[in-house]
Design a protein around this nucleic acid. Structure first.
Length: 567
DNA sequence: CTCACTCGGATAGAAGTC
DNA sequence: GACTTCTATCCGAGTGAG
């Protein structure tokens, strides 16, 4: 009943882009073969992955929409032809040789086999939301040809749907990508529902784990650690942790991804699934400097032997700004500032505070204190005079964020606030990147996405790591000028500036990879606009207009990995 | 339940540019 | 004077902790 493997692979190669339905059928066929391969697929590849929900806890097709955990599950296949085929495929070398005979490179064959051996990939939920998207991505890329880029994949898989969705919803490419992944879920799910009616086995209660919702919005929450110090921080020595990354997640290149920690529910779970199931490192920069900055970082860097930038930054408001102590009221007991944001308090806020305080006694009544404390916390105000609270100056924000003084001089004040609010906290990022210092004594080649004002570059510079090359992608012209200006003053390496991540396609990436011999680090934090709690209008999650650029980070990272694998 | 916190956005009007 | 750019001033909800 099973297909000879040569037929499967050859058919896939022949079908190529021309027939999406047939291709999907073949992929599903291949997956069906893999579904029953317990021996191959059930090994664990990662010591850091979150607990994986077992099949028998999760597959409940008839009752998918409700919370009844006593539904059926798909039994393991009793088809001896499949098992025979899979036993045949169990030897990795043999598989590689077979694939090489068919014209695939060893890297391509290795990648495909690695993917096919991954536990999640091997599960019934392959094309569902819960399946790791990077596996789907690699798998499709492999079967469609290694040079196909994501947009081509999407087009060939569901061209009519893409067109329809784009026209009717005005969606961007990455949103379409996400939806196509979702659409696979639907199709595969329908197929599996049909199969499950034939092969069903009852199982008892006690199901564990969260179930992805059917509308594609995964509600899986990811609890933030307390204290939010990541895997470790200077002065916060937790239990020593060693992590084993999935094979596909390891470098080269190293990568470093950043975004707001307090994103809407399910966002970090989704980001994690795209980025190789690596557990995010949540850090509040409050533990390293005088201002809070709760951020999640997903990276494949070593976590041992980190070292902070010296001198350590001031850790309290008074250490950072001693002169404000003079006017600081005793009933304002803040020692740290809240997150430095892009918007500053309007003059009306500070005027109202001054007016309220001057018209009340000393100390002011509790109600006034409460109001003023609230406004000061909300707008990050500091006491600059008697009864006078004021927003931080841009150079003070630069200082707290670890940038050199007047890094952004010459730019409008509003723009400076905006860029700084969107930036890295340099000391925090530098602490994570410090492990690169000993690894690249001759310098690093960096692909910097969503560069902003160059927080990652400044961090590397302050660590004393020479940047041989930085290919920087940043949409803001003012930010590009700031980086260029800083680069010309401090650096000797090559800086290439690109405006739009969407314009950075596979061929150009491959050109840079060939030109520079690859990248050592792919670093970037994609836009948080649609994730941040401050956004009252369009907190749309990862599919939002700006935040969906995360998918471009994912796309470009994989493109770099692919190009480097083919070097 | 209350409370605290959040890499923001839309708009009108001012200011600058041609 | 038309147009663009900049600036000030408004605008709650989602989430989690207690």
């Amino acid at each position: 009943m099973g297909f000879p493997k040569e037929m499967v692979v050859r058919s896939i190669k022949e079908i190529g882009h021309s027939d999406a339905e047939a291709l999907l059928e073949l992929l599903l066929t291949y997956k069906a073969l893999g579904d029953d391969d317990d021996a191959v697929g059930n090994h664990s590849t990662s010591g850091c992955n979150p607990p994986i929900v077992e099949d028998n806890d999760d597959l409940d097709f008839e009752n998918w929409n409700d919370d009844d955990d006593t539904g059926g599950r798909v039994s393991s296949s009793d088809d001896s032809g499949y098992e025979e085929f899979l036993r045949e495929m169990s030897d990795k070398d043999e598989k590689i040789n077979s694939l090489r005979d068919m014209g695939f490179s060893e890297d391509e064959a290795n990648m495909a086999i690695t993917i096919c051996g991954m536990p999640l990939f091997d599960r019934h939920s392959f094309f569902m939301e819960k399946a790791p998207p990077y596996a789907i991505y690699f798998c499709l890329k492999f079967f469609l040809g290694v040079d196909a880029d994501l947009s081509v994949l999407v087009d060939s898989i569901s061209a009519s749907q893409v067109t329809e969705v784009c026209h009717s919803r005005n969606l961007s490419d990455h949103q379409v990508t996400a939806r196509c992944f979702d659409s696979f879920g639907g199709r595969k799910r329908a197929r599996l529902i049909e199969e499950s009616k034939k092969k069903r086995k009852r199982y008892g209660g006690g199901a564990q784990g969260k179930r992805p919702s059917l509308d594609g919005s995964d509600e899986e929450s990811m609890p933030l650690p307390k204290p939010m110090v990541g895997f470790n921080l200077p002065g916060y020595r937790g239990p020593s942790m060693t992590r084993v990354l999935p094979e596909l997640a390891t470098g080269p290149p190293y990568f470093y991804y950043e975004n707001v920690a307090r994103a809407p529910k399910g966002v970090w779970a989704k980001i994690t699934r795209f980025l190789f199931d690596i557990q995010p490192e949540f850090v509040d920069s409050l533990h390293l400097c005088a201002a809070a900055r709760k951020r999640g970082y997903i990276h494949n860097l070593p976590t041992e032997n980190r070292s902070p930038l010296l001198p350590l930054p001031p850790k309290t408001i008074f250490e950072a700004f001693p002169h404000y102590k003079k006017w600081w009221p005793s009933w304002d007991q803040r020692t740290h500032l809240n997150c430095l944001q892009t918007c500053m308090a309007p003059a009306t806020v500070t005027e109202r505070i001054q007016q309220k305080l001057s018209s009340s006694g000393n100390p002011p009544p509790q109600s006034v204190q409460k109001y003023v404390r609230h406004e000061c916390s909300k707008w990050n105000l500091v006491w600059v005079g008697k009864d006078k609270a004021a927003p931080l100056e841009p150079h003070e924000m630069e200082y707290l964020l670890g940038f050199p003084k007047d890094h952004k001089r010459g730019v409008g004040k509003t723009q400076r606030y905006k860029s700084l609010g969107n930036s890295f906290q340099v000391d925090t990022v530098a602490y994570h990147l410090s492990v690169l210092r000993g690894m690249f004594p001759n310098g690093v080649r960096v692909l910097s996405l969503f560069t902003g004002i160059g927080g990652g570059e400044v961090a590397l510079h302050k660590l004393g790591i020479h940047m041989r090359v930085v290919v920087s992608v940043e949409i803001g012209e003012a930010n590009r000028q700031i980086l260029r200006s800083w680069w010309d003053q401090t650096q000797t390496g090559t800086l290439i500036e690109i405006a739009d991540v969407k314009s950075l396609k596979d061929d150009e990436i491959a050109t840079y990879v060939r030109r520079f011999g690859g990248f050592d680090l792919v670093i970037g934090g994609s836009p948080c606009n649609n994730l941040a709690g401050s956004n009252r209008h369009h907190r749309d999650g990862l599919e939002g207009e700006h935040s969906s650029l995360f998918y471009d980070y994912f796309r470009i990272l994989n493109s770099v990995k692919s190009a480097m694998a083919n070097m």
